[in-house]
């Protein structure tokens, strides 16, 4: 089996004259939870819709389970469960009736309805009309639909949208359970890094249609520790600037304060050494913006 369950190569897409995806390449490892991150309007949903065949591909290659998606659309979709944007639920039907519709389409046995309702914790309210569900329950029912045919790959577009904190934790635990216990590969998009970093094994960051980072979560953490911003308060600002100018990028942050970008943590000590050698007195040196959230912002605003 191919080690990548989804391979996207050089995907570009226009809506009219607007370029919404620019040469995006994604590699989703088998068995991973792939967090697809980017601010609203970055191109996440467009990418996911292209992977599911809901948009006609313009340029690039999409392979799912090792096969070209366009040529093997039905076979590919048999192995994919999806939730794109809002849940697709027939509100006049109850959860069991909704699942029955999809069960016939996915050709799976009757007992799966009970199993997936159990899995998402909706067994007790399976006979209640879906229109009476809270948003969190609708979201869980949509995930039950996605899980119905026991797919290898789950594609979830912002599944935590509209959920309360408790719902987000439940969703996170469910996804971790599906990944660890059942070996599901999960491609999950979000605009919140904090939400994804708790479960993702791999991360892709997209902004304005361009993929800016792709790698494992440890690689992202490495990038984080490699890119630190420190704030230094000194007695002589001009002298400090002269000392740092050749080796560092910095900005003035106050009357006697500089913000310096360090690409490795050893550079923090090096910056301090340079200032001391230049005769600049350092009153305060602190690391700022080294969390992943800040790194995410740095990456997409770079």
């Amino acid at each position: 089996m191919n080690s990548y369950i989804v391979q996207v190569e050089n995907l570009s897409h226009h809506f009219g004259k607007q370029l919404v995806l620019d040469d995006v390449s994604l590699l989703i490892p088998n068995g991973s939870i792939y967090g697809f991150l980017g601010p609203n309007g970055a191109g996440k949903t467009t990418t996911l819709r292209l992977i599911l065949g809901l948009l006609k591909k313009q340029t690039g290659v999409i392979r799912v389970f090792g096969d070209d998606f366009e040529r093997h659309r039905i076979a590919a979709l048999e192995g994919i469960g999806s939730l794109i944007e809002q849940p697709s639920i027939y509100l006049h039907l109850n959860a069991r009736e909704n699942l029955e519709i999809y069960r016939l389409a996915y050709k799976c046995g009757q007992k799966r309805v009970h199993e997936v309702l159990e899995m998402v914790g909706l067994n007790d309210v399976g006979n209640k009309k879906s229109k009476d569900y809270s948003l969190g329950m609708k979201q869980r029912l949509a995930i039950a639909i996605a899980l119905l045919h026991n797919p290898e790959l789950l594609i979830l577009d912002e599944p935590a949208n509209g959920l309360d904190p408790n719902g987000i934790i439940e969703m996170r635990n469910l996804l971790l359970h599906l990944n660890r216990e059942f070996g599901k590969t999960i491609l999950i998009s979000s605009h919140l890094l904090a939400e994804v970093e708790k479960i993702a094994t791999d991360v892709g960051i997209i902004h304005k249609g361009k993929l800016l980072f792709q790698g494992t979560l440890p690689e992202l953490h490495q990038l984080q520790s490699d890119r630190t911003i420190i704030e230094i308060e000194v007695d002589d600002l001009e002298n400090a600037k002269t000392a740092l100018a050749q080796l560092f990028s910095f900005t003035t942050a106050g009357r006697n304060t500089l913000q310096v970008i360090c690409n490795k943590k050893e550079q923090v000590a090096a910056a301090n050494d340079l200032l001391v050698k230049q005769g600049v007195r350092v009153y305060n040196l602190k690391v700022i913006q080294n969390d992943l959230e800040a790194l995410f912002v740095q990456i997409i605003t770079a």
Binding site: L54, I84, Y90, L91, Y102
Partner: peptide, 18 residues
């Protein structure tokens, strides 16, 4: 409109049906 009202067209086209 049953499909449109329930945002169900996209799910319908993401099913393994021709």
């Amino acid at each position: 409109q049953t499909e449109y009202r329930n945002n169900a067209w996209k799910q319908l086209y993401a099913l393994p049906r021709s």
